[in-house]
């Protein structure tokens, strides 16, 4: 499989701040790759490094095998969907979408035809004559997508493109983006701080924290086998058990993750004190205290819900407890 984007020990420092710190990464061609992390974790800087808006302080980025150090953004085979969409306010939708083709020297009628096609692809036909200011957030997002895709980039970079949309629209766009990517076969590199979004859309996910990659893997890997407490905590709101408690349970003093839905109420087992409940619809989340370790669990319908302060007994299947070995980290 061809590598679309490769990071080789890439760092980007701003004075003493290490925005990106010695990152190694391979994105395969045709892959839907998500960069996930909290704000300030370096994921957006990585995206800007690929686009060429930032230069690495050290290390090298290759795009389809080509070292990109001296290649300006306008010569890279990548296009970006910006977080604020960055549509040109003085051009109508058609000219916005056709902008890249116009720069490439394509004749007017030809590029307008292509722009109309791209607008159809993003389900926005008939809007070509409007100004961006006359569009809703979701429509602007589609125009930004069409404007990037019409150039047939080898890699499409998306910087939190769904961040400004409301929940319903965001969920619909997730599905659409995913099927669009399948249909076009273009490599997508997608930056987000929303773990649900990353896990549901991506083929592979890189979890960033403090300028470093914590873990790269498929959504299942990341969710079921988090490699660091940070990943376990950030992805899927897992319980992270402290080494002291894990030692009592298994004899090994390492962090471990335990998904809330794997925890059961039992007649006997580990004693826990209920410290709170929150009703989530289909399930109720209980927060528990086990010798100072806080833990949450999901309780399905049909169970009687214990009250705060009640003493309960809990347990889980042996393979539900995932030990995080610091040596793989």
């Amino acid at each position: 499989m061809t590598t679309a984007v490769a990071f080789r020990k890439v760092s980007r420092h701003y004075g003493p701040v290490r925005a990106v710190d010695a990152v190694d990464l391979d994105v395969a061609e045709g892959e839907f790759f998500a960069m996930l992390g909290p704000s300030g974790s370096g994921k957006t800087t990585c995206l800007r490094l690929i686009a060429g808006f930032e230069k690495p302080t050290s290390g090298q980025i290759e795009i389809f095998g080509q070292p990109s150090a001296d290649v300006p953004p306008y010569r890279r085979p990548v296009n970006t969907v910006f977080q604020d969409y960055a549509l040109f306010p003085h051009l109508n939708v058609r000219d916005n979408v056709a902008y890249g083709l116009m720069i490439a020297g394509m004749a007017r009628t030809e590029r307008h035809r292509k722009a109309e096609e791209a607008l159809e692809l993003v389900a926005l036909p008939g809007y070509a004559d409007r100004k961006p200011s006359a569009l809703s957030g979701g429509q602007r997002q589609r125009v930004a997508l069409a404007r990037a895709l019409v150039n047939q980039p080898k890699v499409l970079l998306l910087d939190e493109p769904l961040g400004a949309l409301d929940l319903k629209l965001r969920e619909a766009m997730q599905v659409e983006l995913k099927s669009l990517q399948r249909q076009l076969g273009i490599t997508f590199v997608f930056v987000t701080h929303d773990q649900g979004e990353a896990l549901s859309m991506a083929d592979r996910v890189a979890v960033f924290n403090d300028g470093r990659i914590q873990q790269v893997g498929t959504p299942q890997d990341i969710y079921d086998r988090p490699r660091t407490p940070f990943v376990a905590d950030f992805v899927g709101s897992s319980n992270v058990l402290e080494p002291a408690m894990v030692q009592r349970l298994t004899g090994r003093a390492v962090h471990a993750s335990l998904r809330p839905e794997a925890v059961r109420l039992q007649n006997e087992g580990l004693a826990a004190r209920v410290t709170g409940q929150s009703f989530l619809g289909a399930v109720t989340r209980l927060t528990l205290d086990v010798d100072g370790q806080s833990l949450s669990m999901m309780l399905g319908k049909g169970h009687s819900i214990p009250r705060t302060g009640d003493l309960v007994h809990i347990g889980w299947d042996d393979d539900a407890l995932h030990l995080m070995d610091p040596s793989d980290g």
Binding site: G52, F53, P73, Y74, V78, N79, T80, F82, G100, N151
Partner: peptide
């Protein structure tokens, strides 16, 4: 916005 100029460069200008 700076992103406007970046977008133009990103689109090949």
């Amino acid at each position: 916005p700076v992103s406007m100029l970046e977008a133009s460069g990103d689109l090949g200008a």
